[in-house]
């Protein structure tokens, strides 16, 4: 099975994250880049599927040069090779144009299964899997906390507010995963050493045959017009127990629709 796992480099959530003052896009130099956490679960799931069914795991990332760190980590975990879509023209791409660029690349490199995290911790749109499936014309299986492949049938448990739905599709397919799906492995030192020798193909916009008017900030359908720091947390509500503390607490929770 030919599995492509999409990973994204995001600013470390533990550090202060900023937008650039000139175009309100993410300031990728302001914070350390790390692998989007949910994508590590996607890599792990891809590796487990490969271990169970054979085949190959290719890492696909779109991002600036320093996203190579993210590729290296996925390769150190055990992926076989990588494709790095990198071009200044891609800067500022929104979800729609990102899905276009990645779908074009996926068509080029071929796949039976595409796996990715259900959202990234930077933009948090959570729509890429659906958009990719639509653009590629393949089955869309999102928010999976369990994946099973049998022959050409792929079945997932899709997490819902009330439990899960069982959703089945046939390969090729796009799957997005949630953090309950597995426990990502740590790369071993042998894996880190092996990653050095694994092939990484760099593709520019032209090589990926991307139309210039479909990518980058100019092609974006959404625009960040303003950003403000989160307001400081307001003082909480203190319930003083005068014999009716329980009732007051319940009223408060009810007013917030917690109960």
């Amino acid at each position: 099975m030919n599995i492509v796992v999409c990973v994204k480099q995001v600013p470390d959530t533990a550090t202060e994250r900023k937008l650039r003052s000139d175009d309100n896009t993410l300031d990728r130099d302001a914070a350390d880049g790390v692998v989007n956490e949910l994508d590590e679960y996607a890599v792990e799931e891809a590796l487990r599927l490969k271990e169970a069914h054979g085949g190959e795991v290719t890492v696909l990332t779109m991002g600036p040069d320093k996203a190579a760190d993210t590729i290296r980590k996925a390769l150190a975990m055990g992926a076989d090779k990588a494709v790095h879509l990198v071009d200044d023209a891609l800067h500022g791409s929104d979800a729609l144009s990102t899905s276009y660029a990645m779908a074009q690349t996926l068509k080029k490199i071929g796949f039976d299964l595409v796996i990715l995290g259900s959202e990234s911790t930077d933009a948090r749109t959570g729509v890429l899997a659906a958009m990719l499936a639509e653009r590629l014309g393949v089955a869309q299986l999102t928010l999976a906390n369990k994946v099973e492949v049998e022959g050409s049938a792929v079945t997932i448990q899709r997490v819902t507010d009330y439990g899960y739905d069982k959703v089945q599709g046939s390969l090729p397919a796009v799957i997005s995963v949630v953090e309950k799906i597995n426990e990502p492995r740590y790369p071993s030192f042998k894996g880190i050493m092996a990653a050095k020798k694994k092939p990484v193909q760099k593709l520019g916009a032209a090589e990926a045959e991307l139309a210039a008017d479909q990518i980058g900030l100019g092609a974006a359908w959404s625009e960040v017009t303003e950003a403000a720091a989160a307001p400081p947390r307001a003082a909480g509500t203190v319930v003083k127990d005068e014999g009716d503390g329980g009732v007051k607490t319940a009223d408060f929770l009810s007013s917030k629709k917690f109960i």
Binding site: Y186, F189, I192, A195
Partner: peptide, 15 residues
């Protein structure tokens, strides 16, 4: 080396 720097990252993460 790059590999030893990557190892430090992984160990920090694990810790």
């Amino acid at each position: 080396t790059r590999e030893s720097a990557d190892l430090i990252e992984v160990v920090r993460d694990l810790a």
